[in-house]
Design a protein around this nucleic acid. Structure first.
Length: 501
RNA sequence: GGGCCGUUAGCUCAGUUGGCAGAGCAGGGGACUUUUAAUCCCAAGGUCGCAGGUUCGAGACCUGCACGGCCCA
C-alpha cells in the first residue's frame, strides 16, 4: 500500500489509492485540510425534494440551500459537471457550473472530488431541463477524502463474504441493506412501545452469569481476573427476570443479547437478540395474547400489513393463531401415534424408521420432541402455537394438570422456525429442585446443554414467586421474517465470521 | 462433522480440448455547457485464494489447506 511519501514524485498515478493520496497532499500543500471538523448544512436531500416538488424543469427557485453527504456519481462534461450527493435522507444532484464557480475554481473542484468523498455544498436550488432537482453550488467544500474506490455502481457489492465483513461498504453500495436494518430497528422500537403500553417495565439483568441457566445450550466461558473465577456469557436472562417477579415487579421485559457457543448457520449467530417478558398472575393463555400482540406490532411497524410474504410463501399473521399439540403434529407427520403410551424401545424404533438419530440417554420426552422437530416442524407454515411440550425438555415450565409428562408450554412456529417460546412458569420450589436434579444427572451423563443447578434461584422461589407466564421472542428471526431475509446474517449488522483468509 | 459449489484487476464477471490473462465499471490522459449506469478517443491496471503434484507447457487436471455459499447432521 503506497503512502504519501511514496507518491510525492508522481504527478498522476494510475493506482486509485495513490491518485487520491496525491490529491490529499495537494490540498494540504495549499492549506486546505482534507479532513474537516464540521459543516453546517441547512437542508437534507429529502427535504429539498419535498419543498421544491412543484418547481418546473429548467427553472431556478431563487432560494439557496446547503447540503452535505457522500458523492455517489460524477459526470464531468468539461464546463459543467453533475455530482450525485447522498445524505441520510436520500440523494440530491449537485449541478456544478463554471460560470457559477469561476472557470479555474470549477476545474480544481471537479478534479479534486472523487466518487466516495464527503462533500458540503451551498447554492441555489434549481430543476434542470431534464427535470432533476439540483443545487447549483456557489461553494463546494471537500469534508473528508475517500481513498478507496467504491464498488461498481451498477451491480453494487454482491460478494456475500465482503458484504458481511465490510458492512460499511455494503451499506454504501446496497441501499436495500440500509432499509432492512431500518426495519429491524423499527421492529424493536415498536415492540418496546407495545410492551410499555401493556404496563411492562424494561429492565437490565446480568450478562455475566456465575451459573449458566434459562436454556439448553453450551455457554461461552470467560474469566474474572480480580475474583479469579470463571463466568459465563448468558445463554438466557430467564432466571434473573423471574427473580424480579419474586421481588415484586409484576410485568418486566428485557430486549438484549444472549450468547450460545454453538454452530453458525442461516438461523444461528453466536450472539443474538431476544425479548423475554414475564407477567405475574397470568398463564399460557396470557402469553399467547402477548405473543400475538408483539408480532402484530412488529409487522405493522415493518410492513404496514399482516399479510406478508417470506421467501415466496404467503403468510397471514392475523390473530388468533391456530393451536395444535406437539404429540398430535408428530403423530400426523409420522403416520402413526407418537405418544407417551409407547415404550422407549418403541419410540427408538420409530426414530430409526424415520431416520431420526437419537442418543441412548434420551427418555420418551426427548425422543418425542426430536420426532416432532425432525418430521413435523419444518412443514408448519403458521403462525401456529405448538403446545404441550414434554417435561423432559422443559425444566422451567409448569406441569400440565392431568398429564405429568407434559408442560404448559408453547412455541410459535412460522415457516418451520421457532420464533417464540413460552410457559406457564414453574413456581413450585420443590418441583423446580427436582427438575434441576434431573438436569444435573443429564449433565453428569455427558449432556453439555443441560442446565446448571442454580441454588440461589431455588432460594428465590422458596421466598415465593407469584403465578406467572413467561415469553421469549427471537428478535433476529422475527426480523428475518418481516424483512424477507433468508439468513440471520442479513439482519445482524456485523455477523460473526472466521478470521479473513 | 459430511456432501456439493465458489475464490481471476478496486468492483461485477468471461476465460473453449491444457498452449502469450480478457471485458465493463472504477482509476489515469484527452474532448464535451443539461447529465441520470452520460457519451467518445487513448493508455494503463493481475501473487488467477494458498501450498504441493502431473505435464514440454496449468487460471484450467490431481492432492492438501484457507475462506465463503448451499444442503445435510
Amino acid at each position: 500500500m503506497p503512502d504519501e511519501s511514496d507518491i510525492l514524485g508522481q504527478e498522476q498515478p494510475d493506482d486509485p489509492f495513490a491518485a487520491r493520496l496525491v490529491k490529499v497532499a495537494a490540498m494540504r500543500a495549499s492549506g486546505d485540510e482534507p479532513y474537516k471538523a464540521r459543516y453546517d448544512r441547512t437542508h437534507l436531500a429529502a427535504g429539498l425534494h419535498a419543498e421544491h416538488k412543484d418547481l418546473p424543469a429548467g427553472e431556478g427557485s431563487g432560494v439557496s440551500a446547503s447540503v452535505a453527504g457522500r458523492i455517489m456519481a460524477k459526470r464531468d462534461q468539461g464546463k459543467i459537471a453533475f455530482l450525485v450527493l447522498r445524505d441520510g435522507s436520500g440523494e440530491i444532484q449537485l449541478f456544478l457550473r463554471s460560470d457559477a464557480l469561476g472557470e479555474a475554481r470549477f476545474r480544481e473542484t471537479v478534479d479534486r472530488i472523487d466518487v466516495g468523498d464527503w462533500v458540503g455544498a451551498e447554492g441555489e436550488v434549481v430543476r434542470t431541463r431534464r427535470g432533476e432537482l439540483s443545487v447549483v453550488p456557489a461553494d463546494v467544500v471537500l469534508l473528508s477524502k475517500s481513498l478507496r474506490p467504491l464498488p461498481e455502481k451498477f451491480h453494487g457489492l454482491t460478494d456475500v463474504e465482503t458484504r458481511y465483513r465490510q458492512r460499511y461498504v455494503d451499506l454504501i453500495a446496497n441501499p436495500e441493506v440500509r432499509q432492512t436494518f431500518e426495519k429491524r430497528f423499527a421492529i424493536i422500537s415498536a415492540i418496546r412501545r407495545f410492551m410499555e403500553s401493556q404496563g411492562f417495565l424494561e429492565v437490565e439483568t446480568p450478562m455475566l452469569h456465575p451459573i449458566p441457566g434459562g436454556a439448553a445450550a453450551r455457554p461461552f466461558v470467560t474469566h474474572h481476573n480480580a475474583l479469579d473465577m470463571d463466568l459465563y456469557l448468558r445463554i438466557a436472562p430467564e432466571l434473573y427476570l423471574k427473580r424480579l417477579l419474586v421481588g415484586g415487579f409484576e410485568r418486566v421485559f428485557e430486549i438484549n443479547r444472549s450468547f450460545r457457543n454453538e454452530g453458525i448457520s442461516v438461523r444461528h449467530n453466536p450472539e443474538f437478540t431476544m425479548l423475554e417478558a414475564y407477567e405475574a398472575f397470568t398463564d399460557l393463555q396470557g402469553m399467547m395474547r402477548l405473543a400475538e400482540g408483539i408480532v402484530v406490532a412488529a409487522a405493522e411497524a415493518a410492513c404496514g400489513t399482516l399479510q406478508i410474504e417470506y421467501q415466496g410463501v404467503q403468510l397471514d399473521l392475523t390473530p388468533p393463531w391456530p393451536r395444535r399439540t406437539l404429540v398430535e403434529l408428530a403423530s400426523e407427520a409420522a403416520g402413526e401415534e407418537v405418544s407417551f403410551a409407547r415404550s422407549v424401545e418403541d419410540l427408538r424404533r420409530l426414530c430409526d424408521r424415520h431416520g431420526v438419530p437419537f442418543e441412548p440417554s434420551w427418555g420418551k420426552g426427548k425422543l418425542i420432541t426430536e420426532l416432532f422437530e425432525k418430521l413435523a416442524e419444518h412443514a408448519i407454515i403458521g403462525p401456529m402455537f405448538v403446545t404441550d411440550y414434554p417435561l423432559e425438555t422443559s425444566p422451567l415450565a409448569r406441569k400440565k394438570p392431568g398429564a405429568p409428562e407434559l408442560t404448559e408450554r408453547f412455541e410459535v412456529i412460522v415457516v418451520g422456525r421457532e420464533i417464540a417460546n413460552a410457559f406457564s412458569e414453574l413456581i413450585d420450589p420443590i418441583d423446580q429442585r427436582e427438575r434441576f436434579e434431573a438436569q444435573a444427572r443429564a449433565k453428569a451423563g455427558g449432556d453439555e446443554e443441560a442446565m446448571g443447578y442454580d441454588e440461589d434461584y431455588l432460594r428465590a422461589l422458596e421466598y415465593g414467586m407469584p403465578p406467572a407466564g413467561g415469553l421469549g421472542v427471537g428478535i433476529d428471526r422475527l426480523a428475518m421474517l418481516l424483512t424477507d431475509s433468508p439468513s440471520i446474517r442479513d439482519v445482524i449488522l456485523f455477523p460473526h465470521m472466521r478470521p479473513e483468509a
